[in-house]
């Protein structure tokens, strides 16, 4: 399962429309969630609309919050996205088996109990990759400490999962002509949180769309797990047990 969480104030001004980039992510099976960060008063009409549009195209959810609520929101989005992705997979599988549009709710209680047990297990054990993309331009710069805290907090929750869980962190704009900067490659451990957001570009563009595209390229590449076959062992028993979802596991 792969998802991107974008944290921005929603005023991109360079490159491809970020909603179009998010639509591309969605086609790749990557859900894009967006957190709009308030600066004192409100996000402004344009910012709020952009946040909403990106999430709609990315098949994800959007929330507009104060900086202090970023950590909580990141947690909630990650969990809900995992739960909904699993639910959709189950829905598709059930509909294939039953030959018509069948939701968990349509099953009789006994069967429902069994299916939900599998869903809960997948929630806990399915491999998960979350890429956090943080807008570090202009007024967002003051929000970076809150973003850093949210990253540490999410890492802690991911570490508690049974399944392989990895986090990558990016910020944009990058230095020189690059649209994005990688702060942390796929990792299950945040050893040096202070190293995040060190290479800030002080120039003013906000290339949200191009940054999403760069993150997609990175996500298409190898995960850290592929370098280490032992890491797969965590997921393997589940795959053999639940043959249905084999194709779906990353």
């Amino acid at each position: 399962m792969k998802q991107i969480i974008l944290i921005t104030d929603g005023c991109s001004n360079v490159g491809i429309d970020p909603a179009a980039a998010a639509a591309q992510a969605y086609e790749d099976g990557i859900v894009v969630n967006v957190i709009g960060v308030l600066d004192g008063g409100d996000l402004g009409e344009r910012g709020a609309a952009e946040v909403e549009r990106i999430a709609a195209s990315g098949g994800g959810m959007s929330r507009v919050v104060h900086a202090k609520d970023i950590a909580r929101t990141v947690q909630m989005m990650t969990r809900q996205t995992v739960a909904h992705t699993i639910r959709q997979v189950i829905h598709t599988e059930l509909s294939t088996i039953m030959g018509q549009d069948t939701d968990v709710a349509a099953l009789p209680p006994g069967k429902r109990a069994q299916v939900v047990e599998v869903m809960d297990q997948l929630n806990e054990e399915a491999a998960l990759q979350v890429a956090l993309l943080i807008d570090a331009s202009g007024s967002m710069r003051a929000k970076l400490p809150a973003a850093k805290e949210a990253i540490q907090d999410l890492m802690l929750s991911l570490q508690a999962r049974r399944g392989k869980s990895e986090l990558a962190v990016f910020h944009y704009p990058g230095r020189q002509e690059r649209s994005v900067e990688l702060d942390l490659g796929w990792s299950s451990d945040l050893s040096a949180p202070d190293k995040l957001f060190q290479k800030l570009n002080m120039k003013g563009t906000t290339p949200t769309g191009p940054a999403i595209i760069e993150v997609l390229k990175y996500m298409a590449g190898p995960s850290s797990a592929q370098a280490n076959r032992d890491d797969y062992a965590v997921v393997e028993p589940l795959q053999t047990r639940e043959g249905l979802f084999r194709d779906y596991m990353v």
Partner: peptide, 23 residues
Amino acid sequence: GDSVRQFTELYDRGYWHAGSRTA
């Protein structure tokens, strides 16, 4: 051994930097 499904920040040991969120 699973991750804690639901918690409240103020009483969560992760929030207090005092340990994991493992049940």
